[in-house]
């Protein structure tokens, strides 16, 4: 038996919008730790890792570890039927082939049940070791979204370089080139507007902008984004999900042939 009650149901709606274009089908894993997902995109270039800790739910009952295969497009369709202020409860029976999403309006005058069919999904689970990153950039998520969108109108690949001067996002395409440099800025009124660059070693890596743009679908989840870079390793783009967890995107770099 599984029953997870999330008062801030809009978080789950936003989480789905952040991953459904990247991954078609995925297993949601439920354990005493929380509600989690790890999945790759169909071309195995990017990986998404989601964790919503059990403490973040108003009620969290998970009698035994459960893995539920879901089509994220269909799940998104169902969650779109929940109001932004609704409380969402996820319910499933052990060994069952459906999951139920229950939506309660804040005033309790509307209660809806949506039952979705589960599917068997064969998925690889990758072990991601904790790494010391050469450079970590924290910046407003809206700024990162803007940069990815702007650069993708010029080119297909972004080069992200961190030096002691700051962080540079560059691209090149048929019509020309673009470079955007951000400098550390911590003298801001609101901490979420800060640009914090932690450089242990300079680093420069190339990534497909198409994926970066897809990651920025998570922008509504968090005011800030953290980009962790190390030479010859996938970049990690992390958005916090309120106080309850995170969504992390891992993207393999490109190299010049």
């Amino acid at each position: 038996m599984l029953e997870l009650r999330l008062v801030q149901g809009s978080l789950l709606k936003k989480v789905l919008e952040s991953i459904k274009d990247l991954v078609n089908d995925a297993n949601f894993d439920c354990s005493s730790t929380g509600f989690s997902l790890q999945a790759m995109d169909s071309s195995h270039v990017a990986l998404v890792s989601l964790l919503l800790r059990s403490e973040g739910f108003e009620h969290y009952r998970c009698d035994r570890n459960l893995s539920m295969g879901m089509n994220l497009g269909n799940m998104s369709k169902m969650l779109k039927c929940a109001g932004n202020d609704d409380i969402i409860t996820i319910k499933a029976d052990d060994g069952g082939d459906t999951v139920t999403f229950m939506f309660e309006s804040p005033t309790q005058d509307k209660i809806a049940d949506f039952e979705m069919k589960l599917m068997d999904i064969d998925s690889e689970h990758l072990g991601i070791p904790d790494a010391e990153y050469h450079s970590i950039v924290r910046m407003p998520s809206s700024e990162f979204q803007r940069i990815c969108k702007d650069l993708s109108t010029i080119g297909d690949t972004v080069v992200i370089s961190v030096t002691k001067e700051g962080v540079k996002f560059s691209t090149a395409g048929d019509i020309g080139t673009a470079n955007i440099v951000l400098r550390q800025n911590t003298t801001v009124d609101k901490p979420e507007d800060a640009i914090v660059i932690e450089m242990n070693e300079p680093v420069s890596l190339s990534f497909a902008l198409r994926y970066m743009n897809s990651f920025t679908k998570a922008t509504p989840l968090s005011d800030t984004v953290t980009i962790s870079l190390s030479s010859e390793l996938p970049v990690v783009v992390e958005y916090k999900v309120a106080e309850m967890g995170y969504i992390r995107y891992y993207l393999a770099p490109k190299i010049e042939e």
Partner: peptide, 14 residues
């Protein structure tokens, strides 16, 4: 032209 790495090259299958 750039070569795109596969993410599975970096992390071990559990």
């Amino acid at each position: 032209p750039d070569k795109q790495f596969d993410i599975t090259l970096f992390y071990k299958d559990l």
